[in-house]
Design a protein around this nucleic acid. Structure first.
Lengths: 185, 185
DNA sequence: GCCAACTATATCGTCCAGATATATTGTCCA
DNA sequence: TGGACAATATATCTGGACGATATAGTTGGC
């Protein structure tokens, strides 16, 4: 089976909200779905070119008073049909490559203090993330209560919270072993 | 900063256990660290060629009675020095691309029954994984109690358990909302 | 005796991420 | 007033990672 370009589908759903420039798309991704989905310009530009060639999106020049020429992309009817099929199809499983776990698995070849440092760094980043989630929950999401999208947005946020809390607990447990349990027995 | 080839480092640590063929390496990865690290032949072959060229691993032909010629790779002293530095360096954060969450975020554009199907499929796979973890804990890991590697191996397993349980709970919670809560209010 | 499954090697296309290049405008502050 | 810097906005290149595919001998079951 041919490899499917996930970036193209992601761009189609995003452009179905409203027409955007490449820069807008990138900013939107980072702000709203950044914690579970990433796109870089290196993917967006070729994908938009491809989508334009297949008539799934339309490109038009927007007038700007400042900066370089601004090109805005909008989804076509054919584009909407295309992503409807994709939405219904079974999502592919995530592929994980966790460098921290790799280093920990071969832990005896390294230094315990290094592992502790790495774990504390991860713990800090995960706690930061939890704070961000709480902020979004309180100050962003709440505004949209009643909107049809609201429960869907909330459920993705809750995924992040569940998994992040699990990582935090694991960090704490593992740090405790590395710092104390290591000496005993 | 130049991009670092993670596959090469992974191969170095793996080959530091014992000399292996490309096929052995792939099997080893799948069996032991497969739930947090993946390698395909498309990465392993070029990486081994590169490592051989840099004298970090040595390639030699092993005698075989059957099948195609078998080439076994072993780590050199230079190779051991190289991966020691990498072990101590801060691991790069995981990059996630969760297609299920992407579809759920734009859930109002799709069909609730599709979301339910996708979530049930994820829930089943995560429950399977939990069973596998329990098997490994009971029948594999227990044999190595007392070995220095044991607590490190156990901690990576516990990471999987924590995070997988979090996903299971989220699936259940989200399914409940989609099946029941959706009708009310 | 043939087909399927396993062992084992290897390459190709393409997706994806990050670094980099270029250019304009607004803002801070010395 | 001038310079540094951040933000807006476009776009490309390199190389790492993934999945499909090709090839071929061995083993075991029907």
């Amino acid at each position: 089976m041919a490899k499917s370009n996930k970036t193209e589908y992601a761009l189609l759903v995003i452009l179905s909200i409203e027409p955007m420039s490449c820069y807008d798309i990138r900013s939107y991704v980072q702000q709203s779905i950044g914690f579970f989905w990433q796109e870089s310009y290196g993917q967006i530009y070729p994908a938009l070119r491809q989508l334009t060639a297949s008539k799934l999106v339309a490109k038009r020049k927007a007038q700007t008073s400042r900066g370089p020429a601004r090109y805005v992309y909008s989804i076509t009817k054919a584009g909407r049909r295309k992503f409807a099929n994709w939405l219904a199809a079974e999502p592919e499983p995530e592929k994980v490559r966790n460098e921290l776990l790799l280093k920990l698995y071969f832990g005896t070849m390294g230094n315990p203090t290094d592992h502790i440092r790495h774990l504390e760094s991860l713990l800090a980043s995960q706690n930061d993330r939890l704070k961000q989630f709480a902020q979004i929950e309180k100050h962003v999401l709440r505004q949209y209560e009643g909107v049809p999208d609201y429960p869907y947005w909330r459920s993705t946020l809750r995924f992040g919270q569940h998994v992040t809390r699990a990582r935090v607990r694991w960090c704490q447990e593992t740090l405790e072993w590395l710092k104390n349990g290591n000496n005993k027995k």
